[in-house]
Write a protein that binds this DNA or RNA. Structure first.
Length: 608
RNA sequence: GCGCCUGUAGCUCAGCUGGAUAGAGCGGCAGCCUUCGAAGCUGCGGGUCGGGGGUUCGAAUCCCUCCGGGCGCGCCA
């Protein structure tokens, strides 16, 4: 439990005491109030508006209530002093023990710190990406992938059982057109009207010409489109340009539990069954030969066609069948991550769900805004493979190469995609993402973690010291104001994970880590300017009898504290899916021309 | 025209679901540091929170209205 939660509990108890003594009305016990770490140090370690928040329920002036609360709070174990400020704020100063206790909580929980017990909040499905399998993943799909994955991870950490699903749009006109485009390319003909062009179509065509010539010649569109879709998803052997959507996603660290095919919904008769059900319920109406679903009755702005005059069902019909099927598969909660250009869909989907008597409060749609790429502040221009469209693979490869690390591109994209709320549009500058300098926030964040690792490594290698287990005696030596402030920050992590999960806002975790990183850097510099250090410096060890002057207990206490930061830092990075790099590439090696090949950097096993 | 998103420092964005003198990064200026790991640290300057009205002890946050930007409004998927 973080500092704020402890204090909140104390205040709630104190309010209850005051009620039982007849000082306040009973109504105040349920009141909401804020407890926060104030921005200004003169407002104490924690501040609360409790007296202001309950004034109406109590029917007394806030400063009177504040005085009652202050008098009693001051007697509590962790509280050093209480001050009444302004209209009735309470500013509390806490004893060091309140902060030190957090270290014990972190070390006891280890890598599970901040995670709720598994699967206590029910089953959720997060559907994301679901890009048409008629082309490689583009840069804007990447945002959906990262946002969806991070939201799924957050929901898991907050106690949901989460299933990650990709819906494959492998039915209907688009895939038929795709197959026809591939066949045309194989014959060196123009793509059909509204069909697909681009280098990858030709590459796929020549692969099929070599390996499936008969099928190409057959005129069997259905079989050809099934094969073409499979190759788009799984890739064409030996082709980087057609590496496959699933491999692109794997390279981004995004894994799906299930892939559901639209075509299979049709084959299993789920779409027809869904329409029959609507028909029987009187939700359909035939107009000019087409079947309309009366979605207006459920809040849509116009009725929608579900079966066209030619007898074919629409995409919308399949989508309703799909959402309903998700609920029937037993999910309590559906999350759908879509690009902003799909927002027109929400009302009709919601209407469809309600038409089936399902509670659409259990259906959530998140529309992420679009992404544009820059190079040195100017619009990105690269290969003409897809005209102006940029694939994720291209960008990932370029960053991996610059950093000489497989995974660097994925980390950079994760960072930039998750560093902003998903409802604002973003620009990503690929030149910035490639830099190994302070300007690049991804580098800063990963370096911060590597430095913590390095301190722990040095402790072990030079001094044979492991971070010790938690003990109160040792924790009492964690006394530097910056150290205590950082413990308070770390203690907020579990509550933050819950807040971020419930708000579906991964960027909060990222901001937390940036702040953590900055705090440590600031501490580290300050410590040095105070002539202090976590471990003896090389210059000190050069002096005779240096060991006699070394306060080893203090070093141990600080190692314990560093271990806490390390634990939370790693947990945060893992939630975001950013690699916790234990050692950065040495600059010398980076500059050397001798090591052109890319290799993943060895990381130590997770020992939290 | 209607619907969704959005407008906060020169730029890019946070702002803990209504709290105190609105924050961070980058950029600018002034000092300091030269390393337990290389991202340095500290301070300063920078704001009608798009405009106007309302709700209340209190509004960047909630409501109304106007203005600007993005996206969407197919018997396409």
């Amino acid at each position: 439990m973080g500092i704020e939660d402890h204090v909140r509990e104390s205040i709630a108890e104190t309010l209850a005491e005051l009620v039982s003594r007849g000082e306040l009305r009973a109504a105040v016990t349920g009141a909401k109030f804020s407890v926060e770490r104030p921005k200004r140090p003169e407002h104490g370690d924690v501040a609360t508006n409790a007296a202001l928040a309950v004034q109406k329920l109590a029917g007394r002036p806030p400063r009177d209530i504040a005085a009652l609360l202050a008098e009693r709070l001051e007697r509590r174990e962790d509280v050093a002093s209480v001050e009444i400020a302004g209209p009735g704020f309470l500013n509390l100063r806490l004893k060091a023990a309140a902060f030190q206790r957090i270290a014990g909580e972190i070390l006891r929980a280890g890598s599970g710190y901040g995670r709720a017990p598994a699967a206590v909040r029910g089953r959720a499905m997060v559907e994301f990406v679901s890009a048409n399998p008629t082309g490689p993943l583009l840069i804007s799909h990447g945002r959906g992938a990262m946002v969806g994955d991070a939201i799924a991870a957050l929901m898991e950490a907050s106690g949901y059982h989460v299933n990650r699903e990709y819906y494959i749009n492998d039915y209907g006109n688009q895939v038929r057109l795709f197959a026809q485009s591939v066949r045309a390319a194989a014959k060196k003909e123009e793509a059909p009207e509204g069909g697909y062009g681009g280098g990858y179509v030709h590459e796929l065509a020549s692969y099929l010409a070599l390996n499936h010539a008969a099928l190409l010649a057959s005129g069997d569109d259905a079989a050809l489109s099934r094969l073409a879709v499979t190759r788009m998803l799984d890739g064409v052997p030996g082709s980087r340009e057609l590496g496959g959507i699933k491999n692109t996603l794997a390279g981004l660290g995004v894994r799906f539990d299930t892939f559901t095919s639209e075509d299979s919904l049709h084959r299993w008769g789920k779409v027809d069954a869904c329409l029959d059900e609507l028909e029987r319920a009187g939700r359909l109406e035939t107009r000019e030969g087409a079947a309309f679903m009366k979605t207006v009755e459920y809040g849509d702005d116009k009725d929608r066609v579900v079966r066209k005059a030619d007898g074919n069902t629409t995409y919308f019909a399949a989508d309703i069948a799909y959402q309903v099927d998700k609920f029937r598969r037993g999910y309590d909660h559906l999350v759908l991550v879509l690009g902003a250009d799909h927002h027109g869909y929400e009302a009709r989907l919601r209407a469809g769900i309600r038409a089936f008597g399902l509670d659409d409060r259990r259906f959530e749609v998140m529309f992420f805004q679009l992404v544009s790429l820059l190079r040195d502040g100017k619009p990105y221009k690269m290969g003409k493979r897809l005209g102006n469209l940029i694939t994720i693979d291209e960008v990932v490869d370029e960053i991996d190469e610059a950093a000489r690390r497989v995974g660097a591109g994925a980390d950079a994209l994760r960072y930039f995609y998750l560093s902003r709320h998903w409802n604002v549009s973003i620009d990503i500058d690929i030149e910035l993402a490639k830099k190994a300098t302070l300007e690049n926030p991804v580098f800063y964040l990963q370096m911060g973690f590597a430095r913590l690792c390095s301190i722990l490594r040095r402790a072990q290698e030079v001094f044979g010291l492991e971070p010790p287990p938690f003990s109160e005696a040792l924790a009492e030596r964690i006394a530097h104001p910056d150290e205590l402030a950082m413990l308070a920050h770390l203690g907020r992590f579990p509550a933050l994970v819950l807040e971020a999960a419930d708000a579906r806002e991964p960027h909060r975790i990222l901001f937390f880590l940036d702040e953590l990183s900055k705090q440590f850097q600031s501490y580290f510099t300050r410590l040095k300017s105070e002539g202090d250090a976590i471990l003896p410096l090389a210059s000190q060890m050069a002096e005779p009898h240096w060991k006699d002057r070394w306060d080893q207990e203090k070093s141990l206490a600080r190692l314990l504290w560093v271990r806490c930061i390390h634990t939370v830092y790693r947990a945060g990075l893992r939630l975001l899916g950013i690699t916790a790099v234990e050692r950065m590439v040495p600059l010398a090696a980076r500059d050397a021309e001798a090591t052109p090949e890319l290799s993943p950097h060895p990381t130590e096993p997770d020992s939290d």
